[in-house]
């Protein structure tokens, strides 16, 4: 009986599509952190390398979602910020119109004291018609303290607390492949953080319009 039910679920054309599906991404970018003072600013720049993956179970344990993102931050100019590696691991549930994942993001730097910095991270997404709302806490491997983003089709525009913005855009390259750009910048008191990454994304719906956020 159970096997029959699984078979029905697996083959049923009426099974609605979940909000998200599997996807992998690999990208490069630049980031800058620093702060302002008396009319000037000091900052440090880094090269970013990012690999991420998301699994969304569509049959067995339907809706179970896990995402992971691994980032490397490599400053090209010596004497400032130290190289670091970040890993975000989250799990949760994806339905037809919403998704919620939570977990932890750890940032490790060999020369920092303490070496490991651990933060909680959450991301929630809700689709209403053509519009999607995304809210995140310590999203983007901890680099966005809190954001609320509105997405239409392949583009998204968001607010990053306390004062900042986030822009995402995706172009389709092939049926299952796309190119995604993410830029965020924010100020927290006199601190400034900016990041730009461009990633190749691949997955069952990665080349679809509006497809796979």
């Amino acid at each position: 009986m159970g096997a029959l039910l699984c078979l029905l679920l697996a083959t049923s054309p009426a099974t609605p599509e979940l909000l998200l599906s599997h996807e992998g991404a690999m990208g490069l970018g630049l980031s800058g952190v620093g702060y302002t003072h008396g009319g000037g600013r000091w900052g440090d720049l880094s090269l970013e390398r990012v690999v991420s993956a998301r699994l969304v179970f569509e049959r067995f344990l339907r809706g179970l979602t896990a995402d992971a993102s691994l980032g490397q931050s490599l400053p090209p100019l010596g004497g400032g910020v130290a190289p670091s590696t970040s890993l975000s691991l989250r799990a949760g549930y994806t339905g037809e119109r919403f998704s919620l994942v939570g977990g932890a993001v750890g940032q490790y730097s060999l020369s920092a004291q303490p070496r490991l910095q651990l933060l909680p991270t959450f991301r929630a997404q809700l689709r209403l018609g053509e519009l999607s709302f995304v809210a995140g806490v310590f999203d983007y491997r901890g680099q966005a303290p809190a954001h609320l983003t509105f997405e239409v089709g392949d583009f998204g525009l968001g607010y990053v607390a306390p004062m900042g913005a986030l822009v995402t855009g995706r172009i389709r390259l092939a049926e299952h492949v796309g190119l995604e750009a993410t830029a965020l910048a924010f100020r927290l008191a006199n601190a400034e953080v900016a990041m730009l990454t461009i990633s190749a994304v691949a997955g069952p719906r990665s080349g679809r319009a509006g497809g796979n956020r």
């Binding site: 952190v33 702060y35 910020v81 910095q117 006199n190």
Partner: peptide, 23 residues
């Protein structure tokens, strides 16, 4: 006050420390 890494948190804490102590 040098942020230890490119972490947004490190930059924020360094910035607040600088603002109080230096500025």
């Amino acid at each position: 006050f040098q942020p230890a890494t490119g972490s947004a948190l490190d930059a924020s804490v360094a910035a607040l420390t600088d603002d109080f102590f230096n500025e």
